[in-house]
Nucleic acid binder design. Sequence first.
RNA 1: GGCCCCUUCGUCUAGCCUGGUUAGGACAUCAGAUUUUCGAUCUGAGAACACGGGUUCAAAUCCCGUAGGGGUCACCA
Length: 447
Amino acid sequence: MTNSSVRVRFAPSPTGHLHIGGVRTALYNWLFARNNGGKFFLRIEDTDRVRSTQESTDVIFENMEWLGFDWDEEPRYQSNRLGIYDKYIDKLMKDGLAFEVEGGAVSFKVKEKAPLVFDDAVHGKISFDPTLIDDFIIRKADGFPTYNFACVIDDVEMGITHVIRGDDHTSNTPRQQMVYNGIGAKLPVFAHIPMILGEDGTRLSKRHGATSVADYRNRGYLPEALLNFLALLGWSPGHDEELLSIKDMIEKFSLDRVNKTSARFDNTKLDWMNGQYIMDAKVDSITESLKPFIEDAGIDHKLLDKDWLHKLVELYQDRFKTLKEFPLKTAFFFNDDIQFNEKAVKKFLQKDAPPGTEQIGVILEDVCSELSGIADFSVDAIEASLRALIKKYNIGFGKLAQPVRVAVSGDSVSASIFETLELLGKEKSITRIRHAVKTFCGQRETN
RNA sequence: GGCCCCUUCGUCUAGCCUGGUUAGGACAUCAGAUUUUCGAUCUGAGAACACGGGUUCAAAUCCCGUAGGGGUCACCA
């Protein structure tokens, strides 16, 4: 069921970062619009002259684009629309519904007595008693409108049909409803979506670490993963699938499947989901996304061989959950001055290793001569020669692979040893193994 | 404190509207399989209807109350 007359908006205030909760609000609005074939608008609510900054506005656009949102028409700026608000205020004053207060501000006069009821799309009927609501300022002394007023005027002027916003606005609704009534406008459909809480169940704040989109971007999350995760915090498609493409979400989205309860932000699940997107992505696309993170790790990716990097990313594709982890896990490929894990060295290279492995220095020397004899330093050739060696020494494969792994990578954890050696290259592999033997095995270099 | 909203595994949720399910899935956890390590993957396990009253043959589902949580009470948005 589509309704192409649907018009919704995302209306952030440019007073800081683009908050992750705001992103989900934007997402729900956007999904709802696209699901219905309607319009999605952006409106910058910059009526706080002190806190609004151009920088914040730039950040909003930049991150909205990064997330993949698109919007209809040019974004509106409330600071450009002062004349419109004034026009309505004049009318309201004429009608006795607004009056000037001390200091030059204008206040709305609350005259309503009957309960203010609206039918919330996610909560059902919600009712407030207007006699409990005080008159409220609609135009500040500086001439700028306040939120509860500007918001209504713009929504009316823009023909907004559905106001989808955070739960924290529920108690603003009766005030806004009075403004709608006061100017004789029809109420839109309100949909108050639950808040996103931190992992500890309290309101998401700086205390929880990342709260802005930029934070998540910098931590190496993919926009599609972030959106997928956010969509599911408070909404369910009604089936068991959890990995949803943008297309899936647009097709399935509906307001009546939005939850009423606030949700905690589960970083662990986000990590899992991001990992799934990384695994499913095309290697080239991930490599591209990885570049800034490789740069950040102090590696000039432009100096890297394209095919080599492609292979490395492919090898590690299911081993990192965030882009940021990649340069950490692959550091030993880029830096010859590798860090050795003491425990790993002790266990696999040193003399007090378990019986049967005290010859490890000798065996590693043999590995080096075998490797140096390989003309075509490929995975297959490397595997063949290492397999031949375990036969020669009559040892399990792990007895050989682990020492080699520690020698070349510094730790007992890495991707397949064959691929690792291949990507490291013949010279580096041999140099590192020899160096490890010399440093840790108490053996002399044989030549 | 007033007003408003909310309450299913540790977490995100399906189920609720149109009472009858072994209360399902996912993340996490644990166990097993696989493996050259880790990861990934596969299989399996434990894990929830906040509490108390009703209504009913039957309540997670409908009604009332209690408790708990959240939001909001600005010339901020």
